[in-house]
């Protein structure tokens, strides 16, 4: 579904990703962990084609996207739901226009049909339908995050969902609501998801496949049970603060 083959990338001279390879199967969810600046957001941007690798290949559904033209990308991107780190909602559009964005732009649906979908999505997100005509500026952070997820899922049947720290900085209740959302979407057939997060405890709820980045290098790729046993210092130092809670979790996490 999504395959990285020896991908390297830099913004300027400083390398951001070095020789990263991994594979996400159809319908699978992968959690990407790593300290700030380790290149997590960059991985998502590479998948959506917002930036191109310096070397190596990015394959989506077996198609090499590295050499794809902007037009080919325009056809693939509406099928990718991207939840940006800062939300990146279109602040001059209403909540309804944000959620219905891909439908408005990429389909011939009438405004009435789109409104039906938008209202469904709002209910799905546990948000009040009255928000439809409100500008995103006046929403709380957690609500904005949910609208941002709504905009991503209302895409024309997404086949890939990319979440960039969807729960960072939220209260436990919003966090749980968003984790539930990710699980709900995961159960939709064939949707592959990549979740970038710092909330390791929640990470175990959504998947058992973890990738850890450190300074642009992939230092771990495997299941949760292995993650907590890894001796690598770079992984250890990242996990240490969470170890207490993590230790208790593999017992309850799903076996593959």
């Amino acid at each position: 579904m999504i395959r990285f083959e020896n991908v390297s990338f830099s913004y300027g001279k400083e390398p951001v990703l070095r020789d990263v390879s991994f594979h996400v199967k159809p319908g699978e969810t992968v959690v990407v962990l790593g300290i700030s600046g380790s290149g997590k957001s960059t991985i998502l941007k590479l998948i959506a084609g917002l930036v191109q690798p310096d070397s190596g290949r990015v394959l989506i559904n077996g198609h090499e996207m590295t050499t794809a033209s902007e037009d080919e990308w325009s056809r693939v991107r509406p099928k990718i739901g991207f939840v940006f780190q800062g939300g990146a909602l279109f602040d001059s559009m209403t909540v309804g226009e944000n959620i219905g964005f891909t439908l408005i732009e990429h389909t011939d649906k009438t405004m009435d049909e789109i409104e039906v979908t938008v209202r469904e999505t709002l209910r799905f997100l546990n948000l009040s339908e009255d928000l439809i005509d409100i500008l995103p500026d006046s929403l709380s952070g957690g609500m904005q995050r949910r609208v941002s997820i709504g905009r991503a899922v209302a895409a024309v049947d997404p086949m890939i969902m990319l979440y960039d720290e969807p729960t960072t900085g939220l209260d436990p209740i919003s966090t749980e609501a968003i984790t539930e959302l990710i699980l709900k979407l995961q159960s939709v057939k064939g949707v592959s998801s990549i979740v970038v997060t710092h909330q390791i405890t929640d990470a175990f709820e959504v998947t058992n496949h973890f990738i850890v980045l450190h300074d642009g290098v992939m230092v771990f790729d495997g299941p949760g049970e292995k993650l907590v046993q890894v001796q690598d210092e770079r992984v250890q130092s990242f996990l240490a603060p969470f170890m207490q809670s993590v230790k208790n979790i593999p017992a309850v996490c799903p076996e593959e």
Binding site: A48, L50, R75, G86, F90, D91, E105, R151
Partner: peptide
């Protein structure tokens, strides 16, 4: 600066 341009591209808009 608020990544809305990237968001446009991510949703298939030039």
């Amino acid at each position: 600066s608020s990544e809305q341009i990237e968001a446009l591209r991510a949703f298939g808009i030039d």
